[in-house]
Design a protein around this nucleic acid. Structure first.
Lengths: 344, 344
DNA sequence: TTTTTTTACGAAAACGTTTGCGGCGAAATC
DNA sequence: GATTTCGCCGCAAACGTTTTCGTAAAAAAA
């Protein structure tokens, strides 16, 4: 509110009461008579009184808001997760401040410090691709700021975590390609430092090994910024295509990476899946109208966001310090479409 | 910060100064000696002092934050616009609180009130599809809360507005279809109450009329929630397809509507553009890997977000009340791809 | 030396709340 | 009738700042 904005003081003056009485009446304290309460509540409602959250924050030391740090909003997985976060937060009367690291370590630090100094009551965070060191978060955590990690997590901080079953998701995707008869399956993935990268990589390798194949290092490409910088993806893809004994299929390990790879293959006039098959992690709602429609490992993004938020609020509102932390693993779903089907 | 968090008081105590002196020193006031300033600054830096923004907000009556209300984050146009908003905001040291109306009038009201009571310094808003009455915003505006509309605007409030050239964008899209030889061009669009709906509708009609054609009301479908509810889109599309003299092309007027329509057509095994051509408004970065690749009117979403934010901050920081308001119109771009090409 | 100006700092109020504590009148207990 | 209890309310401090005003001491002017 800018101009007027009625305060407790105004109510007190109007009703000939003290501010403390009004405050207590509004909060329904037992030490205020029914009649006074009624008067105050009525007057408050009639004049559209809204407590000033800034003052409340200052006084109570909590802001009823939670901060979110993701690498990028403009990404189906994260925007869906944010929908989940928002739905729970609004239900529990918290509000949400969203920030983007854009895969930059610097910005992740800046955002986390900014949020904490703005007194968010807790943090939901998915690490940036550049992040190798989480000291900035450890510091905040030690100061008592509750936090929950989701998707891209770290082992260095003990707190609740929510992830998809990346290992199994990647395993199933790779196995599916193997079942279709592909043998030279390349893997384009994100920064090596990311937990999701490692987990999905392991799943990929496990599937190959279970099929009696050795992973070929030449077929594995790490893209530093997870597809945010198209040039990086393009370079990785070109290297694969220039091999004398190149891949007959590609498994891409992140949302942006998958769409970019498909787009690049199309620009190069490489037919999918005829020349190269493709399976990717993606939460794009348009995967079925791609050309070809894209076989995808989809994560329960909405549920992950919801769960992370529930855990965070639990942490925030817990009376005694929480010492037992959970790592929730939600299942992915493999949606088989055209891009991975062996042409007869 | 939770536990410790060093305050001005702590600095004052440590340096044997008063709080006011420290405060002034930190802000570089001229009435503090160089030496004291140096001491204070040094101590502050050494102990990682960060002013408490909550206290500052309370004192100064401004929060250095701006609120954003869009219908849906999970939408390319809006997530790109938000990227633009965030980039300018961070540059000018504001932070951004994002909320979603999800096309609901109720939630738009709730969000706007919540944001204003949280003392955002200004509002950037794109109206929901359900919104017919903007009294809630008029009230806030009259109270002195600066606001800027973008994309889905209203004539009932005098303030800065940022839109794309919807009329021309729609005109060009329709003309392109006409040039390709299509004659029965349907139009699937959002809620009638939306400014973008009207502007795009007018552009569509103008193109038809300039080609000597009369718009056929039977070919025009208004979808209440702008494609957020798939069933609504599906129904509109079915009605078009069941006509005895149905359309040979469709022009969809919003992001979600376009992808949903393409998806539905594919599910129905209707070939695009062979049986029906398609042009849509969309900012999807994947439009070129759709099947078929989608001819699209794309809006300068990022720039729109940036411009809206610049205008808002201008409004917020202006000394005297602004009375002259601008309506910025940015040009769209028609990206011609396969979905609209007349098969030979 | 006395007066004026300047410099450098502190006291205190204010922003809008919440909350512990003390007080006062009336009812209840003895 | 004196004491205790209890219901109801106000005072004042506190949260961390910013800002106005007052005032010492030092410097400059007389």
């Amino acid at each position: 509110m800018k101009f007027e904005a009625i305060t407790i003081k105004d109510i007190a003056k109007a009703l000939n009461l003290s501010v403390s009485t009004v405050s207590k009446a509004l909060r329904g304290s037992h030490e205020i008579s029914q009649e006074t309460k009624k008067n105050v509540l009525e007057y408050a409602r009639a004049n559209n009184y809204k407590p000033n959250p800034i003052a409340q924050s200052l006084k109570r030391g909590r802001s009823k808001s939670i901060g979110v740090i993701v690498c990028n909003i403009d990404n189906n997985f994260f925007s869906q997760a944010i929908n989940g976060i928002e739905s729970i937060a609004r239900q529990k009367d918290y509000n949400v401040i969203i920030t983007q690291s854009r895969e930059s370590y610097e910005r992740e630090i800046a955002n986390s410090e900014h949020l904490s100094s703005r007194s968010v009551d807790g943090l939901i965070i998915s690490l940036s691709a550049e992040t190798r060191c989480v000291d900035h978060l450890i510091k905040l955590n030690e100061k008592g700021l509750p936090m929950v990690f989701f998707d891209r997590i770290t082992d260095e901080i003990e707190t609740h975590k929510v992830i998809a079953n990346n290992h199994l998701g990647a395993y199933e995707a790779t196995r599916h390609l193997l079942q279709q008869g592909f043998r030279r399956i390349a893997h384009i993935t994100s920064s090596r430092s990311l937990s999701i990268t490692q987990e999905r990589f392991e799943g990929y390798k496990a599937a190959l090994q279970d099929a009696g194949l050795q992973p070929d290092p030449a077929l594995i490409k790490f893209v530093q910024h997870g597809g945010m910088i198209q040039e990086e993806t393009s370079q990785a893809l070109s290297q694969l295509l220039e091999m004398e004994n190149g891949p007959d299929a590609i498994f891409t390990a992140s949302d942006r990476l998958s769409t970019t790879t498909l787009s690049l293959l199309r620009k190069m006039n490489i037919e999918v899946p005829k020349q190269i098959a493709l399976v990717g992690f993606t939460n794009s709602i348009s995967a079925d109208i791609f050309h070809p429609s894209l076989t995808a490992v989809v994560q329960p993004a909405l549920e992950m966001g919801q769960l992370a938020t529930e855990l965070l609020i639990q942490l925030i509102e817990s009376k005694r310090p929480v010492v037992e932390f959970q790592k929730k693993v939600l299942e992915t779903e493999l949606k088989i479409r055209d891009s991975s089907l062996r042409p007869r």
